[in-house]
Structure formats: structure tokens, C-alpha cells
Amino acid sequence: MNKFLISILSMAAAATLFASECELTLTTSAYVNWNAVNASKKAGLYDAIEKENNCRLKIVYYPDYLQSLNYFSTGSADAVTVTNLDQMTALASRPSVSVVLQDYSNGNDGLISRHGKSVKELKGQDIWMVTKSISEQLWVKIAQKEGMDPYRDVTIKHMDLDSNLRAAYDAGKINNIVTWNPALEYLVQQTDSHKTLASSADFPGLIVDMIVMGKNVADFDKKAALLRACWDRTAEVVHAGRGKDYNAFMTAIADDMGSSLGEAKTMLNGAKIFTPTEETDFYAHELPELQKDTYKLAADNEFLAESVSYDLNGVKGGDKATPQSVFFEIH
């Protein structure tokens, strides 16, 4: 809440200084690569880009992921940080376009168990998660890989907030959960006996984090370019892995997530941040198939409140990810 207030206040302060007409509202939530956007902004990495693009980036931060999605859905924000699955399901009510592929989860989402030594051992037990989300998506994938029926072999239980999931696990009331970082990291470090039985690292490229923009946003191209440039800058700094900017960035992100520098580093490693070439390759070769697959999984398991149509009209194989490229579009 404090962070939220501070970001609001700093926005207000910046607004009086900038007074540029173009302003892009991006709403984000607590997840390491989305904190990265927040942290870059705070570390001043975007100052030059904002001036160059003559457009200001305003970040509205919510500790809770769903709040940020709802904030975007109501039309209050121009852009939101979201996963590829949730763009189809949670954001279905507002036509949106993904303008940046940030990374894919590479261990940042996982299944953790108090007693279980392997996934198969969980047969007949309860598994808690935020249902209809990437957690359930991941669980379906894990179960299929292990040759289990994701819904019959275990009982899936819903908990609304990931913070509550973590609290209930801490209290010893629930034993198996599928969740994401920072909760995952926190729980694994609690004691050695808690095992991460499976994680998104087993399914590289399954859960893609991205920044999407509302289709109806005015000055779409200009704002998309700003987002593109901003994220490229962040990715560049992270990949550099040293230097003044990197240190400032790491300090800001650790502060933003309320974790130590070491934890922040671990969590950043839990996601594979694309280099520009990787991003281009990914959308050209893997994204079309992934999205078809994801859509099918969501539709089969009633993730979609109602059916949405989608197409991949922006994907043109081999293109460099230009600021204007459109990867995936929800109609």
C-alpha cells in the first residue's frame, strides 16, 4: 500500500514537472519482471526514453495481480503487465494487443509440497492454488507430463489471493500449493523439507509474461513505441549484469519487492528474459503454437468465462520486433 501511495505521489510530482500531453498509464502488480518495470522507472532508467519519445510513462502499482487486471479491464489504464493465458481469459472483455514479450517463466511458478517427494505421491491429496490462472494451467501440464489426470487424481482447491495461500501454508493448514514468486522462494527457504516438486522450468516457454495495450488507446503507435523502448532498456540492463545502472536497478527492485539483493537475483533468474533476437525468434517460431495450445487448454478446462476469438495476425515469421509489431490480438 505504501509503495502504491509513493508511486501515486511521485506520479503527481512528475506530472507537474513534465506537463507533456502524452501520458501512458501502465498498471502492474507484484511479480518479479513486473517489479522490474517499476524498479527501472524508479532507478531513472526511463528518464531519457520518456524525453526522447516525448511521452510519459505512468505506473499504477497493485500488490494484487487481479486488481491490476480489473483496473485495465475497466479502461482506467492503457496497458497492463499480464501472462499470455490471462490475456485470453481475464482480459477478454477489453480487446487488447500484446506489444512486448518480456520473458517466459523459468522456475518462477511451481508446485511445492510439505511432505510429498514426487508429484505422483500427491495422488488423492488436496492441491491449493488460485484456480483458473496460470497456476492451474501449470498444474494441468505437470499432471499430464506425469501421466496423471489433473482433476480426478487430486482435488483442486481454490484460494483467492496468493498471499493467503502462502499464509495458510505457513500456518500448516494446507500442504500442497501451486504458486509463483515471491511466495515460492519464500516458502522454499522456510525449511529444507519443503520441496518444489515441479516448476515452470520444466516447461520453458509455457508461461509468457508480456505487456499488452488496449486496442482503443489513443496514440497507440507512439505509446507502444514507448513501452517497447522502456522494456528494451530494462532487458539491456538486466542482461548486462553489471555497471552503475544495473546496481541502481537491483537496489530498486529489491526494495520494490521487499527482498534482499540475493533473493531478487534468484527471482530474476526464475524468468528467462528475452534478448531482442530471442524475442523475435520466440514470436516467430513458438508463439503461434503456444497460443493455440494455451487457448485449447483454457477452453477445455473452462478457464474462459465465454469463448473469445483470437488471431495471430501480427506474427510474421522472422521479423525483428519493431516497436509497432503486434504479436497477438484478442478480438
Binding site: 487481479l66 487486471l69 480489473n70 479491464s73 475497466t74 490471462d86 481469459t89 481475464a90 477478454a92 472483455s93 491449493w128 484456480t131 483458473k132 490462472s133 482447491k157 481454490h158 484460494m159 483467492d160 489471493l161 493467503n164 495458510a168 494446507i174 474462459l304 468465462a305
Partner: peptide
């Protein structure tokens, strides 16, 4: 009900909230 109830008017509302339904 958001704290782990599997059925309930509140549970459903919060699950559906994900989809702004």
C-alpha cells in the same frame, strides 16, 4: 469465503472477478 471456501456466493464472486464476469 475468499480464504479457501470452495463453494459460496462470495467464493464465486471472487473467482468470476478474474474474468470481470
Amino acid at each position: 469465503e475468499t480464504l479457501g471456501a470452495q463453494n459460496g456466493l462470495g467464493t464465486r464472486i471472487f473467482i468470476l472477478k478474474r474474468f470481470s464476469a
